[in-house]
Design a protein around this nucleic acid. Structure first.
Lengths: 403, 403
DNA sequence: TGGAGTTAATAAAAAAAATTATAAACTTGC
DNA sequence: GCAAGTTTATAATTTTTTTTATTAACTCCA
């Protein structure tokens, strides 16, 4: 069993059976229910004897277990098999500007351990990197899960990331080696990274509404604005892994200076940060809000505004509306560009769904051509606020081709 | 041999050897030079005895031929093999608003027959469709090439196309069945379609500068404005095949009404048509141009303006410059979105390369983030004006997985 | 010129996989 | 309650493929 775990971590295993074994595990992982030997063999295009052989070998290593017989209309009842969810684990970590989260998932991608630190503040310093390593290392030991059973750590981090080389360009960019190789070394576990938005896209692609769609957008609307693009059934990462910089598309109506140095970036008007700024501006120019009854203006964060909108605060609603219309226009443009079948709005703004949905839709009709728009569904993420961390964990299974 | 030709047309051939034979043919097609048996076996992951067996079978059907021995540093000299370019043919047809072109290519994608009709005018009528069918049918018989040797016809046509279903939405949209099935029936040859811009993208992907890049844009700047997107090494067609409607991205600076019914479409300011309009406007407002010496203003077409710019006409140059800057800005935005490694400018405007290149580049710096921009090359298509028709023909080989 | 080294192509042997056949487990209907 | 029909699972046989060995073709260098 130990042997197999070691082998399974090496995707380029020379033994050609490993590719087929991965296919079998991936098939079982993706299936809703346990599968039969004939069913598996048909899907992975193996004859029943060889398929049986491989499955028996997988059972011997204990990664696959028989879970009983299946009821059928007629004929002999087949045994059904599934992956033992606790054969191994993967870890998801999400590092945001404020806060770091850690979750361990079993092979069914159910969370078995969770630890957050909301006091964490991301800084591009070696002190902060050491904190991250300590946080992950301590969380692993606190979880009491055997390190040998951990397939890897998938990290979603803010900023521009090259997921293929494992380099981070905005944070922890002072290392000599890549961020992933440094982390892998320090933690003695394989580490994979991607940006926080791609991680959200992966979550939707494998566990959310984008599951059965070949072309999709997954919007990450939180404090920043990002987008994951799924085209031809695959997440588009681009030549250096920078695809999806939706926040820096020049599409804003004003000419505000963006942190990136350019003007007119969509993110300066559509993002949690922009919402806070707009709110403050409006209040200073005399607008009133229910929010001011409970909080001082300097303390108000975009989450408060989203909540206020839910509670009916007129100013909050109108600001979110305006934002929805604008992002809708931008999305409509991108619908012309890539003709997606579904757009999923994710991130913290999901809580403002009721206020946002119609304004986004109406924005989209202003820019999108009718034909591609007609067949593009707009929905809000249903896999909850923990989507990102699940996506981060899923990177590991993805890279090992177990999903 | 006849048998094999019939088999090769059926991509989903049950015989599992056909998939590997396709791989071998595709490998030989893509290679610059003839290949050796050991070389082929290594690439398609077959042992030498089985590889030899399949290659010998392909030689028996005459699709592959031995072309001599290869010079090596040491050891026995291997025989090298290539695809017999004249074993079969594919046809490319490009249907534009004005003009229809027909070319027959051999398996090396060299043109062996060509016929154009520049008097053709595309209309959405059954009369016009009948003309197209007659044109293709007559061209085939005029070429004297055996119909049995023709693998299929790939058509690139203006307008919105669903390349998977074979439906055309703007032209010939009155049929009960799909356009491809109607044409296949009438011509007794398999027919595949895509829009004129995708066809250009296919040409660049297989024969042009995008050959070795996984993420690329291919701009089709002619009378209209279109874009082919290559992401993760594949052309993105989108959910209904409408991806790449770059001309209808809302990014123009004015509010001109577009044919699509919207305002602000990029195509209203960046396209051959827009160039003609702008030229006329400028002349009417008093600007002068060398072009007016030789032609009446009502006769001037965008091709004339491109030519005039080449000859140094100040007005033409300034208009093309402005257009280049604007499309550059739009492309820069899309660079943020998809992080391509290369942008290829194709279409009739290639002739204005000298005037366009710097203005496009400077436009891009206004919108693109520096990191993705730095690694994105901008070039003009080098595969000439016949790129589109070669791409149309290549659809056939693409669909049959022979390339 | 002829042995050592190298690679290709073929032949022989061994291993692996696919068919086919058979047995087992089950439903249905007479 | 037992034959007929169905499907799974395993065993036996056949086919296919790979591995290994051998022969062939060639270079280099003493």
């Amino acid at each position: 069993m130990e042997l197999f775990l070691k082998d399974i971590r090496n995707v380029n295993n020379a033994n050609r059976h490993y590719a087929q074994k991965r296919k079998i595990i991936s098939l079982l992982n993706k299936a809703e229910n346990p599968l039969t030997i004939p069913g598996i063999c048909k899907k992975v295009k193996l004859s029943i004897p060889t398929g049986t052989k491989l499955i028996n070998e997988l059972i011997e290593t204990q990664i696959i277990v028989e879970v009983g017989k299946m009821e059928t209309e007629n004929g002999r009842r087949p045994s059904v098999y599934k992956v033992d969810p606790d054969y191994a684990y993967c870890i998801g970590v999400v590092i945001l500007l404020k806060g770091i989260s850690f979750s361990i998932f079993n092979l069914e991608m159910n969370e078995v351990y969770k630890f957050d630190n909301n006091d964490f503040i991301l800084e591009n310093t070696s002190k902060c990197l050491a904190d991250v390593i300590a946080f992950i290392g301590n969380s692993i030991s606190d979880s009491k899960i055997d390190l040998n059973k951990i397939l890897g750590v998938g990290i979603g981090i803010t900023g521009r990331i090259n997921s293929q080389t494992g380099n981070s360009y905005n944070y922890f960019n002072f290392l000599e080696s890549s961020l992933t190789s440094h982390l892998s070394e320090q933690l003695s576990v394989p580490v994979y990274i991607d940006n926080d938005t791609h991680v959200l896209g992966i979550a939707e692609q494998f566990f959310g509404e984008a599951k059965n769609v070949k072309n999709a957008f997954v919007v990450n609307l939180s404090r920043g604005l990002g987008l994951s693009i799924i085209a031809n059934g695959e997440i588009v990462i681009g030549e250096q892994g920078f695809a999806g910089e939706f926040g820096h598309i020049q599409f804003a109506e004003s000419d505000k200076l963006c942190l990136c140095g350019k003007r007119g970036c969509l993110g300066t008007e559509v993002s949690g940060y922009a919402l806070e700024q707009n709110f403050k501006e409006q209040v200073q120019s005399g607008e009133i809000s229910l929010l001011l009854n409970s909080k001082d203006i300097s303390e108000i964060q975009y989450g408060d505004i989203l909540k206020a909108a839910w509670e009916g605060d007129a100013l909050s609603i109108s600001l979110i509306h305006k934002m929805g219309f604008l992002i809708g226009k931008a999305l409509g443009n991108m619908v012309n560009f890539l003709n997606p079948g579904i757009i999923i709005i994710g991130g913290k703004f999901v809580s403002a769904k009721e206020v946002l949905i119609d304004s986004i839709k109406s924005g989209m009709t202003h820019t999108a051509l009718s034909l591609p728009l007609r067949s593009c569904e707009l929905i809000f993420s249903s896999i909850g606020t923990d989507a990102a961390i699940k996506g981060a964990g899923a990177i590991v299974l993805c890279k090992l081709q177990l999903i």
